[in-house]
Simulated scan of single mutants.
Amino acid sequence: MTELLVINGTVITQDADRTVLTNSAVAVQDGNISAVGPTADITTNHDAQTIIDADGGVIIPGLINPHTHVSDILLRGSFAENRGLLDWLYNVKRPGTLAMQPEEHATAATLYCIEAILAGVTTFVENDTEVLWDDWTDIEAKLEIYDQSGIRNIYAAGMVDCGADNAFQELVLDIQTRDNDVDHPPLERFVEETDTVLKEVNSLIEAYNGTADGRQSIWPAPVVVETTTNRCFQAAYALAEEHDVMTTVHVAEAEAQEQRSLSSIEYLRNIGYLGDRALLGHCVQIDENDVRIIAMT
């Protein structure tokens, strides 16, 4: 017997022509879409345990959020006014998420999953940039919630293996003076030796990738170009190939101006990081040449 019928809706398909079917229905059997067509035909040919009447609404595939920071949800709306990117990162996000306990990360994950599911998101990529590799409890607290939620999720494990240069350190110190009473973690707090972070990410993949009935994936995720060595980028891509997953990185973010003649996209191509397994977050400051490189790789 068919498990589920969603009837009387406008079905937005994902075929080559993006066909739109009015007054139509979707049948689900054994966890898969088994039939799509006019409501009259689907209901005649399928008996279902559960029937949902879309009542003229739109029936769409599940949405995918390819880049989010789940723990940040508890910082939302309280401290962001009149802050630029670096002000937010170093006065709010990093000290805030580092102060959170595992149960607070679990609360953030619960709230995120509820909002995502209500919005029709069935898959998301959490790009976790503040990872302390000497203790997995924060990570595991969120993974447990994702498992319970039933949502398909990717935990992109942040990798940082080189620190900021002197000029950037001075800039951050100037920014942090805005909130002197905040307990600012040192910039090097999240930096690990290349071999150490690679070993930790590999262990996390081996422990959790493919769990939650196949809905949980773990990806290696160099955080940004400036805090990742060539070797770490190359090894992250190799890890993705070894475990048949993907890898992701922040590239050309808002306010993160390119500081050299070689663009981030060109750099990632040159060292062999770009390819079918690379998901690039942001990309809001790329030019036509960067677009061509992405298209080719």
Rank of each mutant, 00 (worst) to 15 (best):
Y146K: 03
W133Y: 15
Q148P: 03
S149K: 02
A119S: 15
L89A: 00
E140S: 09
L21N: 06
R215K: 14
L268R: 04
E288D: 15
S71T: 00
G9Y: 03
D244G: 11
D30P: 11
I265S: 04
G62W: 03
Y267T: 12
V251G: 03
H243P: 10
H282W: 11
Q29R: 13
Q29Y: 11
I51W: 00
A157W: 02
T44Q: 14
N230I: 06
R189F: 05
A35M: 01
D15R: 00
G163C: 09
R260L: 01
A212T: 10
S264Y: 06
T50I: 11
G120L: 08
Q257A: 14
I286H: 08
E255Y: 12
V70H: 00
V249G: 01
L173S: 09
D138E: 01
T211D: 11
A207M: 05
T44I: 04
V225I: 15
R94P: 04
D181P: 03
L173F: 04
L75E: 03
M246T: 15
N32C: 14
E126L: 05
A35K: 07
T43V: 15
D213L: 05
V172A: 03
H46C: 09
D30Q: 15
N180F: 07
I51N: 01
D179C: 11
R178N: 06
D128P: 02
I205L: 08
E253K: 09
V284K: 11
L280H: 01
D290C: 09
D17F: 00
A99V: 04
G9S: 06
N209I: 03
T50P: 00
A207P: 06
N23T: 09
V182N: 08
G163S: 10
S203Y: 12
V225K: 15
E200H: 14
I114F: 12
W219Q: 09
T97M: 00
R269A: 03
